[in-house]
Design a protein around this nucleic acid. Structure first.
Length: 275
DNA sequence: CACCAGGCAAGCC
DNA sequence: GGCTTGCATGGT
């Protein structure tokens, strides 16, 4: 059976195409299929209804409601970040974004892979990583792969990740997987820390700099007071906010809603303002 | 076919 | 401490 709820302000394309996740794909009928927490799901919007195909209420309450961040009042967030005409335009374009609560290890490895790459390529590398090292399972007659365990990745070699097309990031993947598998760093530990301390801890990992660190904390641990600054964000901040210190000024302008503002700006600059 | 991509570590000063 | 450079490789 399907599980259906009203989610008028939830846009699937805004949410899945805004660059926060790499494992959801559109289908011809407008639905999206993806894998998270070791489960596959197909979702579709019909009017203001969100349809979770073949999903029980138990799985919705236990997994997907939090994953899609459906308990949060986004109308208050949109209002709060609309501090100027630029933000109003960005929110008008991508106001249907939900910040997904993704698994820590998957987010860490995915954003290590993301550095100095582009979204189509990132999706390909992550997909090959899962197909090779993730647990295979079946759902409604289709085969899917869970994101690999830290222990599984930690026992591979750098060359194995180079084969997937990870390039020079291969050594970072192995090193980060070992750090998590060895318990050197964990989601539960970082979750409890204030943002600044969590950043310091995560930045000790080889291959994790400011940008990857902020994305992991924002997209997997709900540290919404971060404003990850990549080339697109620097670009849009320079063009529209007349500043070169994108990260600092973003967090200054938006405070606890920085992560939401950053996603609206990133999605708008990349998908609406392309030459 | 050049150029770019959700940057980073290492090596300089 | 901040600034510069090399890095792998697929997408456009």
């Amino acid at each position: 059976m399907d599980f259906i709820i009203d989610a008028a302000d939830f846009s699937l394309p805004d949410t899945f195409d805004c660059g926060q996740c790499f494992r959801w794909a559109a289908r011809p009928d407008g639905s999206y299929t993806g894998v998270a927490s070791g489960r596959a799901l197909t979702v579709k919007k019909e009017g203001s209804s969100l349809i979770l195909k073949g999903c029980s209420e138990k799985d919705f309450r236990g997994i997907w409601e939090d994953y899609f961040d459906l308990k949060r009042d986004y109308s208050a967030i949109r209002k709060s970040v609309c501090i100027n005409p630029v933000m109003r335009e960005a929110v008008a374009f991508g106001g249907g974004i939900k910040l997904l609560r993704q698994e820590f290890f998957e987010t860490l490895i995915s954003f290590i892979i993301s550095q100095q790459s582009n979204i189509p390529r990132i999706k390909g590398t992550v997909s090959r990583l899962c197909a090779r090292y993730g647990r295979a399972f079946e759902s409604f007659g289709n085969q899917y792969f869970a994101f690999p365990d830290p222990e599984t990745l930690a026992s591979q070699k750098v060359a194995d990740f180079e084969e997937l097309g990870a390039g020079y990031r291969a050594k970072y993947i192995l090193s980060a997987a070992r750090a998590v598998a060895d318990g050197e760093i964990s989601a539960s530990e970082l979750e409890k820390l204030p943002t600044a301390e969590a950043r310091k801890r995560l930045l000790t990992l080889f291959g994790v700099g400011d940008k990857v660190c902020d994305c992991v904390l924002l997209f997997s641990l709900g540290k919404h007071d971060l404003f990850p600054a990549d080339v697109w964000i620097r670009r849009v901040m320079q063009e529209r906010f007349l500043t070169e210190t994108a990260k600092a000024s973003g967090e200054d302008l938006f405070g606890g809603y920085s992560g939401f503002a950053q996603q609206y700006l990133f999605y708008w600059r990349r998908n609406a303002l392309r030459p």
